[in-house]
Design a protein around this nucleic acid. Structure first.
Lengths: 173, 173
DNA sequence: TATTGTTATACTCTATAACTATA
DNA sequence: TATAGTTATAGAGTATAACAATA
């Protein structure tokens, strides 16, 4: 690691030679940064592979939940996708207007809106799922067949992580 | 999986009972969604653990790169952090004004700005790194000591993934 | 011609809080 | 009182494109 205690005297500063020579320090272990970069790459690959006219990953997630769970509510969608219910409103409205889903307010509880996919929604989801599987196959080539399940279960554990579960920590590493 | 081919007749729709009963379908394998959720949880834990007055993860990443690589340029920081150079400008300007870093335009190439941390910047980074390691320790408890390296190397591989490396894919799964 | 850093701008995704209508 | 969904608003994080200075 380089000496970084110089307080700012400008004369002796020297440019870093090449990118490869950089020191990452704690960033090598900084899971959050690697999660962000990996997420962005996965997102971009999905969009490139499915084309600009297809639904984006977030909407695909919602539509897939509706297709697989006719009668799902907006709140349930939010919980399943790890988002606040308010983040789902616009997507569902758009899907209803576009004819991908229909929503019903049941007499037994007129607060809730139960969503189900229309034929058009089911078909779109099915077409997208084929492409999505190609995307996953490409990712799996990177991940390695024997590591895939472990990766996903690890990500799920991190996703469920909350400060409630959190053990008290008094010292570093 | 439920029958989802209903085209919209409203009478027979039934609410999903409980969240646990939901069908995720392809979403179970949908790495991108799990990456996003895991990233958000990791980000939130970092912020909670370090406090509101500390730098956020993005700025911590930049400051750490500067501390570990005196003389690093803005473009190098961007590449190392997986972001466009334009996304770094505001952070570096702010850190300079706050006295965390100083920047020098060398006579050998007056286009570039070489950053180095001041004493104040080094101290802040060191204090934050202690807390950041507590955050990583908590994450590692979830990840499992024996899975940590593999997780990070997998995330790095996904992060470097580009359509250039991408093999042609003609069929699903 | 190419590169560094800057600026203006805009986009995506998401949450918070206040609201309504129901329960 | 509590819950489902809506709305308005705002924030974080980031990229694109055009630009000036410099190489």
């Amino acid at each position: 690691m380089n000496d970084a205690t110089n307080t700012g005297a400008a004369g002796d500063i020297v440019a870093q030679d090449v990118e490869d020579a950089l020191e990452f320090g704690i960033l090598n272990e900084f899971v959050g940064m690697h999660l962000r970069i990996a997420y962005e790459r996965a997102y971009a690959d999905f969009v490139e592979r499915l084309g600009d006219d297809a639904l984006r990953p977030g909407y695909f997630t919602i539509l897939t939940l509706v297709v697989n769970n006719p009668g799902i509510s907006q709140t349930q969608i939010g919980r399943a996708a790890g988002r606040d219910k308010s983040s789902i409103t616009k997507a569902l409205r758009w899907m209803e207007e576009t004819g991908l889903i229909s929503r019903v307010r049941p007499d037994t509880d007129r607060r809730t809106h139960l969503s189900q996919a229309t034929r058009k929604g089911v078909d779109l989801q099915a077409r997208m799922e084929i492409r999505a599987r190609q995307h996953l196959t490409a990712l799996n080539d990177l991940i390695g067949a024997d590591h895939r399940e472990e990766l996903i279960s690890t990500l799920k554990r991190i996703g469920q992580f909350s400060d409630l579960d959190r053990p008290a920590l008094d010292e570093a590493d």
